[in-house]
Design a protein around this nucleic acid. Structure first.
Lengths: 128, 128, 128, 128
DNA sequence: GTGGTCTAGACCACC
DNA sequence: GTGGTCTAGACCACG
């Protein structure tokens, strides 16, 4: 799996990494149960500090996406977390904001729905 | 227009404010050309720092949503900004991440499309 | 509130700190909504690194005991987290282990119950 | 006696093993003077490293729960260790922390005492 | 002045 | 060799 960090971005590096791993799992590039590189290895590959990788891994761990300990290293969780009320709320808020701004920029409802369908078709290759 | 700040949120106050103004314009609660409260006034109403409101207004100005000058105060732009390549890219990235995580949490494509439609119908009341 | 770290202990410093803050809240030495020292301040007082304090604060934050952000610093949460199935399980396991070992060391059921009552009476001064 | 290791747990394997042996002795599943499997055997049964079993056995030995030597293998002590001041202190500290956190999660003194009684009745079947 | 992020480098526990 | 902990010091975002 390829990781692409934008060092100019306002988004923290660990957050970019976190998101890309989530996208990797969703798209099937990372399979359930698959091992991830060690923090040191990945840090070296990307050219960042190992603590930054560690932070991303631990964030994913506490959300239930990864199992990570010193015995096994980091492994994609075998069973993914269920939807929580909190997540639904966050999802709703984010979508609301994005759709509002998209509307102001001239996007129609159709455009948004098409965009979502396209993303779904392009990224989501495996049912979990 | 009512502004609701969540002081416990991870999201910076100025960003919460910025988003609510965008949502206000999209929903028609704020009309094109309408005047916003002065920086000082809004800061006092919400109970936040004056610089925080300023930061939100300036961010909206540089995106073309507001016109701000010393004499007239802050006014919603009469003509909203066109969609830019940069914006499309950001929109695509955000949607991609959200949809991937939603998928991992068990959401189906239908759920997402329904959510988008619902938001559109609920929030977007006026064509610009 | 007084913090006492045992630098010889096997228990990580941040974990000792975390526990003492929990005990402080339970005993009423720290009131709901009360501000804690800044990470820098507390780190200096104790003579440890600020990142270590930060880690303790963040652990307490993610368990819902503290609110911590750069606007307000660290504050004891106004509403404490509810009991979760996970917590109950952990509690049960820990008590089971401790009681078994205590039994092997000659403690009777009465001794254990007395110990628990005593701790309750000594530490828990306020109903939340 | 059945040993159940949770490889996902934060707790080191040797510590899980150590605790389960203590619980086994307390519950009477392991009798005083009873032989334990050899390090090699147990390691193979559980599917863990030989050194890990060794570490658990040695910890139990130095606490007086096991006699371990090259000829006889590991045997549950015929006479269990007395309570020490050090142990009492540890017990007190652990109970204090657990009770404080339980209180914050809404447990009443009654709940805690009931839990302790239940565990005692369920686990402790034989007097030593 | 507050916490957040990132880097760097050290030592330790576990397996 | 793996992650965990701790230290140290720098810069930034926020209010």
């Amino acid at each position: 799996m390829l990781v692409q960090i934008d060092f100019e971005s306002e988004m923290p590096i660990y957050e970019q990494l976190r998101r890309q791993i989530i996208e990797g799992i969703a798209s099937g590039n990372l399979e359930l149960g698959e091992s991830l590189p060690s923090v040191r290895q990945l840090a070296e590959d990307i050219g960042i500090n190992l603590h930054t990788v560690n932070k991303a891994y631990n964030a994913l761990k506490s959300d239930g996406y990864l199992n990570v300990d010193r015995r096994t290293g980091a492994v994609v969780s075998g069973t993914l977390p269920e939807s929580t009320e909190e997540f639904d709320k966050k999802l709703n808020e984010e979508f609301t904001y994005l759709i509002c701004e998209a509307h102001l920029r001239g996007k129609k409802m159709e455009d948004i729905l098409d965009l979502c369908s396209d993303i779904f078709k392009q990224y989501i290759k495996k049912d979990k």
